[in-house]
Structures are given as structure tokens and as C-alpha cells.
Design a protein around this nucleic acid. Structure first.
Lengths: 347, 347
DNA sequence: ACGCACTCCGTAAACGTTTACGAATGTATG
DNA sequence: CATACATTCGTAAACGTTTACGGAGTGCGT
């Protein structure tokens, strides 16, 4: 099957009518439409996207940009695939397709993004891993490309984003730990410029203050968010003169390395040191001891992300009226054994 | 910047010449080419892909199709992102872009694939998670769409693929275990129709035979390839009347759940049961005990995958002469503590 | 002076689709 | 019966790019 022209000839109908029939336009006889659809099905005709895009100026494809930097590869998890499912469930209703755009590690994310939209590969963008100042946001806003960000940023005053409820997580974690007598609570943070790490530590600092605990910079351990980083974090933790009794991890798989290093020194997580993890963790409960962890409903997050994006696209705006422009996404605590350590008993 | 026409007017040059200049065609004055490139850079002109694709009949985009089924999400790892880096390093040389196409879990992979190529979103495809009989391979061959498969299949006699060296892995693992006196060696396998699981078990069976060990179907544990599945596998393992002394895991993260379940019953992995894992595992060494595991160089695998694909595309064939059509990819053993259990001492 | 080859560039057609416009037909209205 | 309107369809232009073709200019050998 070549194109719409062959289909039209086969039906002995003009090409324009065939197009209207396929696209559900009103001014076409229902009988004709039936015949066209049947023939298209039979001959396996699918519209050439290039021709359509050229004419309409839109590709019907949404891009989800992801980093494929070395560190991302190392700590890769189900995060994006989970979100993807939710996104697709929304996009499918509008015959929009989703492609994931992995930015090569040796290319500047900003340049990569520009190239993708300039080539008209996608109509709209979902960006993630937002930096504290992120030129991509500037660019997309200025170029009036519809987009949503997974993560806040300082780069623009008002743009659509969904971010995680760091404040709630930190508060919940600190509350839970102080209730068990903990006063020296460490935290891990990435060394990158990702806004996530910054917000995470800031929320932690404020949560401490609310519980009348002085913030000690020495308790912020800057390591990579991977098993390797967890190992390193435990190592640095054990070297501190006044050793903390609890630690909050920014990424749940870090617990693997952390546990390992602790046990090498005879320190038992959950008994000698309380550990709380962050982000999605169906696997957390299989660790030994099982990890107390905050989890995210990735699918639902994807759904909201998709809706928010479409609400910002003129062609689909009407389907999603009155949506918020920003969402702070709540996380749910999954209690485990890793924070069972009760300091109160020792005091 | 609208299009090439505006660029041409701005330079007071014909549109055809501008196009030739940009595309490196020979019949254009070097001075003119310099001016054009400078102006394009200055005005931020990038060719509209839709127009170009329509004219040339190709999109310059390669698709990497991945499953986003529930199970894939659960055990998602760095696999695809790791391969992606290698792929992009090859594609970049030819100004080809890579997009990842996540097949929605509620859509038939075959239909999804057909839709993507029919819409001309990509020129060529890399498919993964091949099934024992996989209609996608049939379709792509027949439609003469260039493609490479990550994984063998029975669906076509001769198509380009790269697959893992299951035979080598199984042989190496069984060899290593029997050298330490093990005779009852269990293995985990997925319950799906994925060819990977089938080949994995078959290789294991043949490796046993080569070492004069009878194949016992009861020792093939069908569980999901996730932490949860590992937990389940350990559970079933402990119920066997004649308990095996070793187990081979098809996916390294299963070790987390497996360890947990074993310890719950007081069985110490590495001391009471030897464990060997499979597939990439920078994280394996942080488990407690560290996991003996076979690792893959994902980047290099991606490079070969990319080369093999381009060798099958007429436009790029000349750059990659004489490449093999099929590659069995070797894996490297990373020794750990999990298989230290020596049965010989007990006999 | 002529023909020839070579370099460089402009012209226009083509890719497959959507859509504004108007034509043709049928039907209701005055 | 003339007019108005609704329904259905065909015609042709347009989207932005590449490229076959040919033309203009230049240099060279005869």
C-alpha cells in the first residue's frame, strides 16, 4: 500500500473524500465512510506521518526526555517506565504517541532538546531531572513549545511542573525518628546540580528545625545515588566522631551498599542505625532488614503529568479544563524493619 | 526562523543552493557554503524533519522498541539505557537519532510495531525481548524494514540478531559449581514465552549433561524475574524434599528477595547454598554476601547492535562491510562470595 | 574565434497529506 | 416554479524540503 492516492483509486473516489472519511470529518456520507474504512483496513493503509506532519505542522508525538548519563545508567530503575504507562494511558485517547528521548551523555541536554524540537520530531516535551537553573525551561517557554517538567526549577517564574513532596517526606521521616528518640539524623545528597538534591536537603533542614534539632552540615553526606554511593555513605558515616543514630537515603537502592558497609563493621542496620529510604520501592521490603521507605504511585503520576501537558496544548486544552499548573506529589510511607532502632530505650 | 526559504531570502541566494550547501553536496562554492552555514547558525535554522522525510522517504530516526509491561517495569534495570549509549555513539556519526518506543502493556507488541513503522516514525527498528515465535520478526522481514533483534527467535531462518552466550554462562557456572562438589543445581526461569528463558534453561540442561548430572525438572523454578520472584524461588526451593545445594538466577536483582527468604529460614547464602547470578551486575558486589555474577558490557553490546543494524540499511551498508549477521555475546564472570559454599568438604 | 569541459547556481517538480473552496445534487420553502 | 439551503464530493493549493535538469559564466586547448 503506497498512499492515500492508491486507496482513492481503488475505491474510485477522490483523494480528498478519502482523507475526510478517515479523519472523521462531518461532510462525508456514512456509507462512503464505511467503505473507505473497510478498504483501508483491508489494504493495511496507514497515513504517512511525514506528509501529515508537513501539512498540519504537528507530529502527534510527545517526547519524554531522559538523561542517559553514566550515573543515571548506574542507578536506573523503573522510574521512567512506570511513569510512561500512565502517560500513554492519557495520550492514547487522543491518538498521540510517546517516544522516549535519551540524551547522550556527551551532549549538552539543552542542545539536544533544541535539536529535537527544531527537527520537529515532537510536538511537546516532558523534561525531567531539572537542574536548579535549567536553560531548557527558559528555551521551551520562550519558544512556546508546550511542556511539563518533572521537578521544580528556579529558571522561570511560572511553568507547569509536578514535583515530589520533599517537605512532607522529610517531616514524616524526622517525626518518626524523633519519636523514637533520634537526634542525630544524617542524610545523603547527590553532588550534582539537580534541584531534587537541593530541595531534599532543604526540606530536611527545615524539618529538623521544626523539631528543635540544630542542623549539622557534617551530617549531609554527598555521594552518588547508587549502591556504590550507599557503600561510600556508610563509610563516611562510620568515620564521623559523633556518629548519627539514623540516616535518610535519597534513593532506595543505596541501602544495598549501605547495609553491606555497615555489616562489614559489625553495625546492624535497623538495630544500631535507623535507615529510611526515599522514592519508589517495591523492592525495599525484600531487603534484609526490610527498608522503611516512601513510595510513589508512578502510574498515577504519569497520568497527571499527561493531563497537565495536554492542558497546555491548544489543540487539547478543552479536554482538561481548570487543571492546576503545579502539583506537589504526595508519597506514602511503607513501614519496614530498617528504622526499628529505638534510641529512647538507651537514654 | 521559519524555513529554508527565509534563510535563502536573507542570503539572497536560491533555496536550492542553500539546501545543497547545508547538505554538503559537491556542486557549491566553498565561499557560498561558508556563508550559508554561518547564517544558519546565526539564525538558528534547523531543517524541518517532516519536509525532509516526505521528500526523501526516510526519517533519520531509529527506534528501539521496549516492553513496558508490568513485569518489565518491576524488574527494570539499567539494561536499555546502557545499550542506548553504545547505540548512540554509532548513530551519531551518521546524524541518526535514536528514540525509545515503549510498547504500552495493553497493546499487542506486534500491532504497536506495525503502527510505528506504518506511520513512518522510524526508518529502522531494534527489537528486544524476542519471543520463541515472534510475529514482529516475520513482519519486519517481509516488509523489508531494516532491523536487528536483541535475542534469537524461531520465527525466521535468517535474520540479524545479537544474543547472549547462554551456553557459555551455563557451562561456566556448572563447571564452577561441580568443581566444588555440587550435584544438585537449581535454576530460575521466567514463565513467559520469552526465548531468553527457554534458551537459558536449555543451556543449563546441556551443561548438566556434559558434567554427567541428570536433569531434574523439579529443579527448574518458574518465577518472575524480580525481587519478589527471588523471594518466591527461595520459598519453593526450601520446600523441595531433596534440597539443592546451589541455584543459578536468571536475573541478578532476584538475589535480594532470595537472600531474604533464605535468611528467614536460617539458611545462609554462600555458606548453606551457593548462588550465581546472571546479567549485568555492578550492584552484585554490594549485596551481602556479594553475588557471583556474569556481567555484560552494555555499551559495547550497543555499539555492535548499532553497527549490525546499519550494515543492513542500504544507505549505510558501505560503512560496515563484512559484518557478521549474528553474534553470540560473551559474558564475564565476576567472582563473589555467594558461591563459596564447598560441598566437597562435606562428602 | 570556436568548441568543450567544468564550476556554480536557479528553476521547478515531487514527496503524501489536509483543507478551503466551490460544484453538483437533492430537498424544503416561498 | 424559482429560490434557498443542506448534503456530499471533487479540485487544487499548500506545507518544507531535496534533487534532476539545464543555464550562465569561466578557462582552456585547438
Amino acid at each position: 500500500m503506497k498512499g492515500i492516492r492508491q486507496l482513492a483509486e481503488h475505491l474510485d473516489i477522490s483523494i480528498g473524500t478519502v482523507s475526510r472519511a478517515l479523519n472523521g470529518k462531518p461532510d462525508v456520507n456514512e456509507e462512503t465512510r464505511r467503505r473507505v474504512l473497510a478498504a483501508a483496513e483491508e489494504l493495511g493503509y496507514v497515513a504517512n506521518q511525514s506528509g501529515r506532519s508537513l501539512r498540519q505542522g504537528e507530529t502527534k508525538v510527545i517526547g519524554l526526555m531522559i538523561e542517559s548519563s553514566k550515573e543515571t545508567v548506574e542507578n536506573a530503575d523503573n522510574f521512567f517506565l512506570g511513569v510512561t504507562s500512565g502517560l500513554q494511558s492519557v495520550f492514547a485517547r487522543h491518538k498521540l504517541d510517546l517516544v522516549m528521548l535519551p540524551c547522550p551523555s556527551d551532549e549538552d541536554p539543552h542542545e539536544y532538546l533544541k535539536r529535537m524540537v527544531a527537527r520537529r520530531i515532537v510536538d511537546a516535551m516532558i523534561i525531567s531531572d531539572t537542574q536548579r537553573v535549567d536553560r531548557r525551561i527558559d528555551f521551551l517557554s520562550r519558544a512556546k513549545i508546550p511542556f511539563v517538567a518533572l521537578g521544580r526549577s528556579l529558571s522561570a517564574a511560572n511553568f507547569p511542573w509536578i514535583d515530589l513532596d520533599f517537605e512532607g517526606v522529610a517531616d514524616h521521616a524526622v517525626e518518626r525518628l524523633t519519636a523514637r528518640g533520634h537526634r542525630r539524623i544524617a542524610i545523603t545528597a547527590p553532588s550534582s546540580e539537580a534541584n531534587l538534591g537541593y530541595l531534599f536537603v532543604e526540606s530536611y533542614r527545615r524539618a529538623l528545625e521544626r523539631h528543635d534539632i540544630a542542623f549539622d552540615p557534617a551530617l549531609v553526606i554527598h555521594v552518588k545515588s547508587s549502591e556504590q554511593g550507599g557503600y561510600q555513605a556508610a563509610h563516611e558515616l562510620l568515620l564521623l566522631e559523633e556518629r548519627p543514630t539514623a540516616v535518610i537515603l535519597i534513593y532506595e537502592l543505596m541501602a544495598i551498599g549501605l547495609y553491606r558497609r555497615l555489616m562489614e563493621s559489625g553495625v546492624m542496620p535497623g538495630r544500631d542505625l535507623a535507615v529510611i529510604g526515599f522514592r519508589d520501592a517495591p523492592r525495599a521490603r525484600f531487603l534484609q532488614p526490610s527498608l522503611t521507605c516512601f513510595r510513589i504511585s508512578l502510574y498515577d503520576l504519569g497520568v497527571d503529568l499527561g493531563r497537565m501537558l495536554l492542558a497546555n496544548m491548544p489543540a487539547y486544552r478543552d479536554f482538561y479544563p481548570g487543571g492546576e499548573r503545579n502539583i506537589i506529589w504526595p508519597l506514602e510511607l511503607m513501614p519496614g524493619e530498617s528504622d526499628a532502632f529505638d534510641v529512647g530505650a538507651m537514654v
